[in-house]
């Protein structure tokens, strides 16, 4: 426990008129850590991300980015406090070019009036170029984002988060709908972010999880079922019973 915590979740929960999608989840993610959230459908993984990023307002518990409490703040305030989020369904600015997408993300002065100037400072442009390189989208920089393939769209959204350079990055199923080759490339991009950012990844694909995971939190019916290294999780009897079935992890 030498590292300090980047994201602290304390007893967070939400009650959708009687149904508790997330019920008292606590979790500490250390700085630079990559945490994988595992769980069956309906375990509350995405809801937990919604609670952290402000999409859903929690009915109990608290969330901190380092020492700043962000519980139930507005989405854009939470983003500014240091949390970037990638959605399950890739969302990019479809009518803007790839470069423009990244330029929007590179703009860290959020106010309208502060942005009534032209162009972006050189360091922002450097960050955009760097992210284009990292996501392998340099060739596509001038294309409209709407014309990209599914995989490229996912990478573009990742690149936007890289440009943003938030402390914490939440990734909701970053490999959903990807081919094997695309999945591999995604794992490379994510591995490249390790250490520089604190990452929380929701994922189903066990091959991918093995590729990237350090520590895993298993959710089940809105509660934390187990937490540990991939090795321990794969052997954990409770996890096998509740989620993976008797056959174990495929």
């Amino acid at each position: 426990m030498s590292n300090k915590s980047a994201l602290t979740i304390e007893e967070i929960g939400v009650d959708f008129s009687g149904f508790k999608a997330v019920d008292g989840v606590s979790m500490v993610v250390e700085e630079g850590e990559l945490r994988v959230l595992l769980g069956a459908n309906g375990a509350g993984k995405t809801t937990l991300m919604d609670l952290v990023s402000g999409k859903t307002k929690s009915t109990q518990g608290r969330v901190f980015v380092e020492d700043t409490e962000i519980t139930n703040r507005e989405e854009h305030e939470i983003a500014r406090a240091g949390i970037g989020r990638k959605f399950q369904i890739p969302s990019v600015f479809r009518d803007l070019t790839v470069r423009r997408n990244l330029e929007v993300a590179s703009c860290l002065t959020p106010g309208v009036f502060a942005n009534l100037g032209f162009g972006f400072p050189a360091e922002d442009r450097d960050r955009v170029d760097e992210a284009l390189e990292l996501a392998g989208l340099r060739e596509q920089a001038g294309r409209r984002a709407g014309e990209l393939s599914h995989g490229q769209t996912q990478w573009l959204e990742l690149a936007m988060l890289i440009v943003q350079n938030r402390k914490i990055i939440l990734l909701d199923e970053p490999t959903a709908g990807m081919t094997q080759a695309e999945t591999f490339k995604t794992s490379q991009i994510i591995n490249g972010l390790k250490g520089r950012h604190t990452l929380v990844v929701v994922e189903h694909d066990m091959a991918f999880v093995r590729e990237i995971a350090e520590k895993i939190t298993v959710l089940h019916l809105g509660k934390v079922l187990a937490e540990g290294r991939i090795h321990d999780i794969e052997r954990n009897e409770e996890v096998r019973r509740a989620y993976l079935g008797s056959k174990g992890i495929a």
Binding site: F87, V104, Q164
Partner: peptide, 18 residues
């Protein structure tokens, strides 16, 4: 530019901190 981004995907812009 940010306005056009908002037009394309309001939520994305929101989670970028705007």
């Amino acid at each position: 530019l940010i306005l056009q981004a908002i037009r394309d995907d309001e939520n994305r812009a929101r989670y970028l901190g705007f």
